[in-house]
């Protein structure tokens, strides 16, 4: 096991970079995401945070895999279920938590909240709270890359439920006809809100939908970092080298409810337990131990990540709220272009 200092306090670009070739860093990040969301849940439960939040516990492997394959110059559109993606892609836990707690230091100054974290340095647009809305925007960013002859790639991350909205179909069609450098990454966590996929969607293998658009597709076990990285690497490489879009379906499972208030009473008996046996953290831990780390080393890593997060929480809780004037800022761009720009 390589000895990496905790990445909690590094810059977002640096946090992205360490994931590319270091399995320990990837496991550390998965610990961070899980630990972050567990603590967040507790903070909501005590009323320390208002509003709602959408956890991605169980889906950490997909976020970390994507982050490890992307350059900071690539662009990502993701969803309201976005903390895991944001932390994986490089956002600092402090910036994410400050945003969720509505603090002025948050990534959008407390104007966005849990559903709209963003970081311009790593190409993460403010995450989208409208199902499917990020897909055409990613296609458009890909159009800009293609237009200028650049080799950057855009990735749209969305859920299984989003494959039933028009924007999904229109965006795949447009990206295919124009061969745009975009990856459509469907995080199939089996549920859209409180509805299991079989109640809303006539197929459960959503990658099949790519066929209608003559688009290559991948389906992968999204709880497995190694397999997911490989599938994403192929799709990203295809986009980077002019091969056009790919639909990647990652099979995952949402361990928590849809949002804060949801206890998920609708799950069939045994389903959660089935997926918990496939917990991506367990698998990544085992892989690291198989690679030579001791069980104690891995446990130490998890503990120190948790301790660092506890410090972040203490720090963020003490941060000031935004001032009222802040909600009047950055609404309008200037109507006219400045001379020379």
């Amino acid at each position: 096991m390589t000895d990496t200092a905790l990445s909690v306090s590094r810059s977002s670009v640096e946090r992205r970079r360490v994931l590319a070739d270091d399995a320990t860093a990837r496991l550390e990040r998965m610990f961070e995401i899980r630990g972050f969301e567990e603590r967040l849940n507790a903070l909501f439960a005590t009323g320390a945070i208002h509003g709602t939040t959408h956890l991605a516990m169980g889906q950490e492997a997909l976020a970390v895999s994507l982050a490890s394959e992307l350059r900071p110059t690539d662009l990502v559109t993701a969803t309201y279920r976005g903390h895991a993606m944001a932390l994986a892609l490089g956002m600092n836990p402090r910036a994410v938590l400050a945003e969720i707690m509505g603090k002025s230091e948050g990534s959008t100054g407390g104007l966005g909240g849990s559903m709209h974290v963003s970081d311009d340095d790593i190409g993460l647009l403010p995450t989208f709270a409208i199902v499917g809305a990020g897909l055409p925007v990613a296609a458009g960013a890909a159009l800009a890359f293609q237009y200028r002859g650049e080799d950057s790639v855009a990735v749209a991350v969305f859920g299984d439920g989003a494959t039933n909205i028009g924007a999904f179909h229109e965006s795949l069609n447009l990206a295919s006809i124009w061969k745009l450098p975009v990856v459509f990454l469907c995080d199939n966590n089996v549920y859209g809100e409180y509805s299991r996929i079989n109640l809303t969607t006539p197929i459960e293998d959503l990658h099949l939908r790519a066929a209608s658009y003559a688009m290559p597709a991948e389906v992968v076990d999204g709880m497995d970092v190694t397999a997911t990285r490989a599938a994403l690497a192929r799709a990203i490489e295809r986009a980077r080298t002019g091969g056009g879009p790919t639909l990647v379906e990652a099979k995952t499972y949402r361990f928590a409810g849809h949002s804060r208030a949801d206890t998920a009473p609708y799950r069939p008996a045994g389903e959660l337990e089935y997926w918990q046996e496939r917990d991506p953290l367990t698998r990544a831990r085992e892989e690291l131990v198989a690679g030579g780390a001791t069980v104690e080393q891995v446990a130490d890593l998890e503990r120190s990540v948790g301790a660092a997060l506890d410090e972040v929480i203490e720090l963020v809780e003490a941060l000031p709220d935004p001032v009222v004037a802040d909600m009047f800022n950055n609404i309008w761009s200037p109507l006219t272009r400045k001379a020379g720009s």
Partner: peptide
């Protein structure tokens, strides 16, 4: 939507 994304980019 593609216009939005292209404009951002």
């Amino acid at each position: 939507g593609a216009g939005v994304g292209a404009a951002i980019a």
